[in-house]
Design a protein around this nucleic acid. Sequence first.
DNA 1: CAGGAGCTATAGACCCCATCTATGACCAAT
DNA 2: ATTGGTCATAGATGGGGTCTATAGCTCCTG
Lengths: 292, 292
Amino acid sequence: MTNNYELYKVFYLAAKTGSLTQAAKALYLTQPSVSHAIKQLESSFGLPLFTRTAKGVSLTQEGAMLYSYIEQSQILITLAEEKMAALKNLDSGELRIGGSDSLFKHYLLPHLEEFHARYPGIKLHLNHGTTPETIAFLKEGRIDLGVVRMPIVDPQLDVRGSFQLQDCFVAGARYSELQDKVLSLEMLMHYPIILFSRNSRVRVAISELVQSYGYNLKPDIEVGSVDLLIECARRGLGISFVTREFVSRELEEGSLFEVRLDVPIPISQVGIMTMRNMPLSITARKFIELVQ
Amino acid sequence: MTNNYELYKVFYLAAKTGSLTQAAKALYLTQPSVSHAIKQLESSFGLPLFTRTAKGVSLTQEGAMLYSYIEQSQILITLAEEKMAALKNLDSGELRIGGSDSLFKHYLLPHLEEFHARYPGIKLHLNHGTTPETIAFLKEGRIDLGVVRMPIVDPQLDVRGSFQLQDCFVAGARYSELQDKVLSLEMLMHYPIILFSRNSRVRVAISELVQSYGYNLKPDIEVGSVDLLIECARRGLGISFVTREFVSRELEEGSLFEVRLDVPIPISQVGIMTMRNMPLSITARKFIELVQ
DNA sequence: CAGGAGCTATAGACCCCATCTATGACCAAT
DNA sequence: ATTGGTCATAGATGGGGTCTATAGCTCCTG
């Protein structure tokens, strides 16, 4: 009873067409091959499946019983193959991305729009969280890729740099006297500083940078989102530390201006993070290709 | 994309066990064979199905998609194979018999009881009808076998004689003066005769027999069932022409006696009729074996 | 940290069997 | 009868499924 499942494909077509000859054509085989295959199946069950007549074959009672199961089974296989083709064509599938809200909003969104326009059949899942959360999600297989700020050092992960971001300090009209100056850190410390509140990587990075020059960056205001960071600066509550690319609109329209410093703030790189040694889903592969 | 379905069996087990090695054991193959099979499947779809790790394999997103279909498909095949085994063991199945009411009741019933006791999983379908109807049912494939009186001459049918029946005339107490006599047909004609009403084969046969001796058998009463035939005779309404085996109880208890004639009434043979050149269902084969 | 014990991948050889061609037997319909 | 269809059978062939042997890798353990 340990059948070659291939025989069921032959059986299915023979039963469906009612003809070994037709089945052979459909399978690109010769009629004797089909005849032989059916005979094998019959002898494996120890009972005849077909009644042979001059104009073809028809199922016996037991053959009909078998067919009722095999038909469903074969239909499922056909569906499976169609589904796989759809996945390959990106007519179907899903793309699960992890990362921070602000990167989603300011950096990823246009790419997602383009991706969705090109492959409308792909479902998109955005999973926001901190960098460690995103890494954990990735390792659990709950997302296909993560978009985070580099550097990331993890032997299990592949990170490819994709985009550079320049952080900077910005202020609104209230501090317009600073618009054309270049401030020292010393001077900056006299103004109220607005920082991202959580233990975000950006916050840590700038704190450490300032510290390396011997100062202590202590925010007067802490907020929980990039949008609030921007809004506080516009209303003159202080000088915000933000990513320049995220406030490009405000800088252009003049509602914010950059507060230049006499020390350089390192460029930070956005990286696309995927599991090393794990095949990328088709969708993820295509998306990364599109982004780069 | 024209896959060997055998590969799905390998895929199914590999996915289910999460290990190529385990799958190989389950399939009585070696691990490299399984590895090779999976690779074939992957290259046929043009995408990886598994993530290989040091402790086995796990499905990729696309592999999981495939698995959701293939799992169902394989389960159906397993069910199909179990079903076929059940059919072969006669744990399951059906037996569809055609024939006349009286043959069912008086001849077939004990055999059906025995068959059902031995194979309680087999569903029995009794399809009563006249002999031509039964033949038609058989040719339409609506019954597996027919139980009818011979002779049957039809090149499409196989008929095996199974049991002999002796028709005879019987009467009740009212005609007890005939109990020890041997009647001539001439004398018989003076008594009221009770015959089966429809154009039954028995009725035709006895009419022709009597006619061959130069008499005309005209019934005084016609009834539509064997039971009525017996009941009428018991109540003294006349002499009934019945099958002796169907009145064995009445003959023993003395409520009826046989009216002997000076001419022999041919024995009639009950035949089991099946389609020639068509494989018998397992159940039909077993039933015939039991009856004979 | 070396080494063992899993795992999967690769290479190459073998031989079985799925498939082929050729033909036969049968039936139905012209 | 002949033709054209069906399925069955016989025998030959070669591709590919399977094997053994081995490598490479990761994880775990003494």
